[in-house]
């Protein structure tokens, strides 16, 4: 007979986390933890060495993800994670750059960058955690807040309609577009791992409970209640017409999940740049570079 639970002090995912920073700042019932766990597993599962992974976040609750992952990580300014990532990726194509940020960061203040990075088909992966509100500042209206939903800045209900994220990103030209919830951890992890290995602008929307900012004022209950809602109301349909996958989070509504888009388009390549193996010597050109290289660990 095996023992009951064994109490330990380290988690098996700790090596890929900055475990000295745990516990994280997210509220009980928040979905960011599972989303980050799926990303961490997908990093390990990807064909790319961990040291070549870079995580770039913007601002907000999701913006804190970069700081908890034990990879090269950047917590940048609000909305600017994608252009920061663009600079990293173009300047060193050997890197696998993933932007991990929230719906407000990526689609409100940073919406323009989403538009153009997808249009260019920059070779980065974007993971967007959608919790339907601005959580870090205490639950305000965001670009994904459903019509009539209550937030602290829409006390009479939201008069605006929300973005349909997969529809938008697909229209912008992303080569991979998926949506999962943080309950669908296996599908989510698989989708992220697939996106990491696929060249071009790959995008995953992750629906996540925000019990404090969104769940409570909208009678969705705690995190666990919203997870149950995901279980009951989700359908998986990879071929769903994307104009119909908008979310209103009403009790009877359906959440359409799936890997909606998977296609090929030419990946952005700056003029005159060579493939990575030839590029290393010329791109970071310094007259004194040999000396630098000699000092540095390979």
């Amino acid at each position: 007979m095996c023992p009951r639970e064994i109490v330990v002090s380290d988690h098996k995912l700790d090596p890929i986390l900055r475990s000295d920073r745990l516990p994280h700042i997210w509220c009980p019932g928040c979905g960011l933890g599972p989303a980050m766990a799926c990303f961490a597993n997908a990093i390990q599962e990807s064909d790319i060495p961990v040291d070549k992974h870079v995580c770039v976040s913007g601002i907000g609750c999701t913006g804190r993800v970069a700081g908890y992952l034990n990879v090269d990580s950047f917590h940048t300014t609000h909305g600017r994670a994608i252009p920061f990532a663009t600079g990293l990726k173009l300047s060193n194509p050997d890197l696998k750059v993933t932007v991990f940020s929230g719906d407000g960061d990526l689609f409100a203040i940073g919406g323009n960058h989403m538009l153009h990075a997808a249009r260019r088909n920059i070779d980065i992966t974007v993971i967007c955690v959608n919790n339907f509100n601005y959580g870090m500042t205490g639950g305000q209206l965001g670009p994904t807040t459903p019509y009539a939903a209550r937030t602290t800045t829409t006390p009479y209900g939201n008069p605006e309609g929300p973005l349909n994220i997969p529809h938008l990103v697909a229209a912008l030209g992303a080569v991979f577009v998926a949506r999962w919830t943080v309950l669908h951890v296996r599908q989510l992890q698989k989708a992220i791992a697939y996106a990491l290995n696929k060249e071009g602008f790959t995008f995953i929307e992750v629906l996540s409970p925000c019990p404090v900012g969104f769940g409570r004022p909208n009678d969705l209950g705690d995190g666990i209640d919203e997870m149950q809602f995901y279980r009951q109301q989700s359908i998986v349909d990879d071929r769903a017409p994307l104009e119909s996958v908008g979310i209103d989070m009403s009790k009877e509504s359906t959440l359409v999940l799936g890997n909606f888009v998977d296609r090929e388009r030419p990946v952005y390549q700056p003029m005159g740049t060579e493939p990575p193996e030839q590029r290393e010597q010329t791109a970071v050109y310094h007259p004194a570079d040999p000396e630098v290289k000699a000092r540095e660990a390979p």
Binding site: F74, R80, I82, P83, F84, T86, G87, L88, N92, L95
Partner: peptide, 15 residues
């Protein structure tokens, strides 16, 4: 906004 962000990102690669 994007220009300066990309410039900062590139700098961290050593460029």
């Amino acid at each position: 906004l994007a220009s300066i962000a990309s410039v900062l990102g590139a700098s961290w690669t050593g460029a």
